[in-house]
Nucleic acid binder design. Structure first.
Length: 560
DNA sequence: ATAGGGTTAG
């Protein structure tokens, strides 16, 4: 076979591509600009270079310049520009490329369709458009499936992701490392240990068990399903580990509320694995949860020493950590030093003020944030309302609640209603609190009734408390939070519910599906009750709850 | 000569 000599244009295009692959975009551009003529392949190489190096604006500029130069886009060009659309997260750009594809008859080509699905799904409301395109693909490849499942996972719709997985499996789609790892991720999203274990077994059987992407996903799956002993076991048996493996396991131990997250970090250092900002944000959040101020301070030093001092997410985590560890002055220091503050930065500081009882400061900071034109979200409203609640500023809190929808266009969710019930309940306005529960647009769940119950306990309102306790028991609550609620019932008044009934319920508590509360928080809350009021005759019963809780945690959470 | 997918935090 004789090899044809490469044309000068083809050689130059090769050079452009290899410069782009190593991130040397200005070198690529120089070669591109010096070309006497440019065909669609050369243009596409340049567009793709920008798109895959996180420069979507330049990709678009080049795409437009190509049209101006009278060169028609082909399927390769459209796939490349769709990568840029995905980064820009603008649905309009994706839709316009979609229109071009339809007009030029390029739609229906595998790469273009898959890239369209991906680009649409990058937009917060784009999942339906993404599915429409996916649905229209006649010959779906493994890439199509991976893309749509990943999209559902990203949008927090684990149920749909798992549904797509089972359809994919039914259709006999090739199980490669990509389809396997996204399936593992989907099972983690719905916290289905059974499905997760099945896929784990399948990866081993097929022979992809040693793929790092897949293995990392499996470690993560066990930890998201709260099966921590399995996660640790699997982690320790992984023959190869990369930074993501370590980060995943540290995050898993953080989720378990175990101090071992910090131990594992030290272990990682001793193996000379270099941490990145993921590692630091995770470990800082661990210190926050566990109130490990001195370890947190040491991590802060390491962060600065390693040149991560300017990192946005790390600084946000530090603000939160210092606040949770009771050192609000240090939170302020970090916050003030930040050169740019995003919504999370402001929220962390405001929430920090709130839990320390600095209601006025929280409100002032909220107003300052708004004056900078930053849009508050429902988490932030929770923070300010909580701050008002802890500082006894009931009217102020009510004002925020009334303004959040009308002025800021933020719909109050269940959590915000919970804060409101707490706000009204704490100040003794129990009638208004129960009225709010009645007229809110959701079915009240156990945590909302629990908030009312807590207030009844505080103000000795047995009549309303009995009602709240009854409502909770009727809901047959599950999960770790239940322990807190049940100990609250014990605490509030033993005659409100029959012990036999409560014990029966306790046995049914799964403890694996808790939302928004770590084991350590649960344990602390129960501890604090037992320690708080020794004269209460219910304490011995609450001790029983505590004993069961600790036993449960040792077995299920810490694997001992 | 140019194109599409998977893993870590909040």
């Amino acid at each position: 076979m004789t090899k044809l000599p490469m044309s000068p244009l083809a050689a130059a295009t090769n050079l452009i591509k290899s410069y782009c692959d190593s991130g040397r975009l200005s070198d690529a551009r120089r070669v591109f600009d010096e070309l006497p003529e440019r065909d669609v392949v050369a243009w596409t190489a340049m567009i793709c270079g920008y798109a895959s190096n996180a420069r979507p604006e330049d990709a678009w500029g080049t795409f437009r310049a190509m049209a101006t130069a009278g060169v028609d886009a082909n399927a390769f060009t459209l796939s490349s520009i769709l990568t840029a659309c995905r980064v820009m997260e603008f649905a309009e750009f994706t839709a316009s490329v979609h229109a071009i594809a339809v007009r030029r008859g390029i739609i229906g080509q595998m790469h273009v369709d898959n890239a369209l699905v991906d680009a649409y799904s990058a937009f917060p409301c784009g999942i339906d458009d993404a599915f429409k395109v996916f649905d229209g693909i006649s010959q779906r490849s493994p890439v199509s499936w991976t893309t749509i499942i990943a999209a559902y996972v990203r949008h927090g719709n684990g149920g749909a992701a798992v549904q797509m997985c089972s359809q994919m499996l039914k259709e006999g789609v090739e199980l490669n490392p990509f389809t396997l790892s996204i399936t593992v991720r989907a099972s983690a999203a719905v916290e289905s240990l059974i499905f997760g274990r099945q896929i784990h077994a399948a990866t081993v059987k097929i022979g992809h068990g040693s793929n790092l992407h897949v293995s990392n996903a499996i470690t993560d799956m066990y930890s998201r399903c709260m099966s921590f002993p399995e996660a640790r076991q699997y982690f320790s048996e992984m023959p190869q580990k990369d930074l993501i493996t370590w980060n995943t396991m540290i995050a898993g131990l953080d989720r378990a509320g175990s101090l071992d997250s910090c131990r594992l970090l030290l272990n990682m250092f001793s193996q000379s694995v270099q941490p990145n900002f993921f590692t630091f944000t995770t470990i800082i959040s661990s210190c926050a949860k566990l109130s490990k101020l001195s370890f947190g301070q040491q991590i802060h030093c390491v962060v600065v020493h390693r040149g991560f001092g300017e990192n946005q997410q790390i600084a946000n985590a530090l603000v939160d950590m210092y606040a949770k560890c009771g050192s609000i002055a240090d939170s302020q220091k970090v916050f003030n030093k930040m050169c740019y503050r995003d919504l999370v930065s402001w929220s962390s500081m405001i929430i920090g003020y709130g839990v320390h009882g600095y209601g006025k400061e929280a409100v002032e900071l909220f107003n300052e944030m708004v004056s900078y034109g930053i849009q508050p979200d429902s988490i932030l409203f929770m923070g300010v309302i909580n701050a008002c609640s802890h500082a006894g500023m009931v009217e102020e809190g009510l004002k925020f609640f009334n303004l959040m929808e009308s002025i800021y266009g933020v719909q109050p969710d269940k959590e915000v209603y919970g804060c409101m019930i707490d706000l009204l309940g704490r100040s003794g306005r129990l009638g208004e609190a129960s009225e709010l529960i009645e007229k809110m647009p959701f079915e009240p769940d156990e945590s909302l009734w629990g908030a009312l119950l807590g207030a009844c306990k505080m103000h000795g309102n047995a009549k309303l408390g009995r009602l709240a306790a009854q409502k909770i028991l009727n809901l047959k609550p599950k999960g770790a939070k239940t322990y807190v609620i049940l100990s609250n019932i014990y605490a509030a008044a033993s005659e409100w519910a029959s012990f036999a009934e409560i014990r029966k319920l306790m046995r049914g508590v799964g403890g694996k599906k808790e939302v928004g509360m770590s084991w350590i928080e649960v344990r602390e809350e129960v501890y604090s009750f037992v320690a708080s009021d020794q004269s209460n005759p219910c304490v011995s019963l609450a001790s029983e709850v505590l004993a069961m809780l600790i036993c449960h945690m040792d077995r299920e959470v810490f694997g001992s």
